[in-house]
Amino acid sequence: MVTAGHCTSGNGAITNPSGSDYIGPVVRDNWRNGYGSVKLSGQSYYSGDLSLYRVNSDSSASARIYKGGKTSSSSRPVQDYWRRWAQSGDKVCTGGMMTGKKCGWQVTDTQPTIHYSGGTTAKNMVVAKKSPGSCTINGDSGGPVCTVDSSGRAHAKGIVSGGGSSDNSGGLCDPCWLYFTDIGLANSAFPGTIARY
């Protein structure tokens, strides 16, 4: 499975939020804590904010994305993944662990460098904006960015890295900003391809 690189440490363990269940080990990670994006071995480009981990044999995973609020157990199948790079004007939804599903995002910039508070830098990212509404918050990182087709199936488009509002109101009056890694970078940077139904 793929998550945000800043959510993990290279060769570390992935657990559930309470730390009580071991899910599996990190396989590859392009994020150096305290610094930000780094190039993976053998690659000449930065691939955003990504980490690949293996799901342990006593756990299960499937190509589905949760829908609804943060406590929802309802999900939808992943039909496919974005077959082109993000472009300005693309519309997307997010699925964060803390805020649940949020739609209305529109891509405004591709391949910028994002400077996060704390001094870390994410390179080769995608920026989206929405207004009005509520923003993603800490804890949503690593969640999916997708679109949903008319039959209710999701198309994977990226991995949430960060965002928020410029006035820290939670986005109720101010535009929300979303920073995510394009799903194409996950496909090119890591072994394998995105699972789908």
Rank of each mutant, 00 (worst) to 15 (best):
88 S>H: 13
2 V>M: 12
191 P>N: 13
147 T>A: 09
174 D>I: 02
55 V>P: 10
101 K>P: 00
119 G>S: 13
127 V>S: 11
178 L>A: 10
152 G>D: 15
4 A>F: 06
79 Q>I: 07
133 G>Y: 06
150 S>H: 14
134 S>F: 04
25 P>K: 14
6 H>I: 05
119 G>E: 13
96 G>W: 06
109 D>F: 08
57 S>D: 09
6 H>T: 13
135 C>V: 04
137 I>K: 10
60 S>H: 13
144 P>E: 02
86 A>V: 11
195 A>Q: 12
162 G>P: 10
9 S>D: 11
111 Q>P: 00
61 A>F: 12
176 C>Y: 12
164 G>C: 06
99 T>I: 04
183 I>F: 00
188 S>K: 02
130 K>N: 07
169 S>E: 03
64 R>A: 15
187 N>T: 03
194 I>E: 00
90 D>H: 10
192 G>T: 06
61 A>P: 07
87 Q>V: 12
151 S>I: 09
85 W>M: 04
35 Y>L: 14
1 M>S: 08
38 V>C: 08
42 G>P: 07
151 S>R: 15
186 A>S: 11
55 V>Q: 04
46 Y>M: 11
50 L>V: 01
42 G>S: 10
195 A>Y: 11
54 R>A: 12
155 H>Y: 06
68 G>M: 14
109 D>L: 09
85 W>S: 15
71 T>E: 13
83 R>V: 08
181 T>L: 04
52 L>T: 01
119 G>Q: 13
98 M>S: 14
40 L>A: 03
21 D>H: 14
87 Q>L: 14
12 G>N: 06
174 D>E: 11
184 G>H: 05
144 P>N: 12
103 C>G: 13
37 S>R: 03
78 V>T: 13
96 G>V: 08
54 R>S: 15
142 G>W: 02
12 G>A: 05
90 D>G: 09
136 T>R: 02
17 P>L: 06
175 P>K: 01
118 G>H: 10
70 K>V: 13
144 P>G: 11
16 N>K: 06
96 G>D: 10
95 G>M: 09
7 C>E: 13
11 N>L: 12
189 A>T: 04
188 S>V: 02
20 S>W: 03
61 A>M: 07
110 T>K: 13
44 S>Q: 04
5 G>E: 06
15 T>Q: 08
149 D>S: 09
56 N>G: 15
138 N>L: 03
137 I>T: 12
23 I>H: 08
17 P>G: 08
134 S>Q: 04
30 N>A: 01
15 T>I: 03
82 W>H: 07
114 I>S: 02
77 P>M: 07
104 G>K: 03
164 G>S: 03
178 L>C: 11
105 W>A: 07
3 T>E: 05
54 R>Y: 12
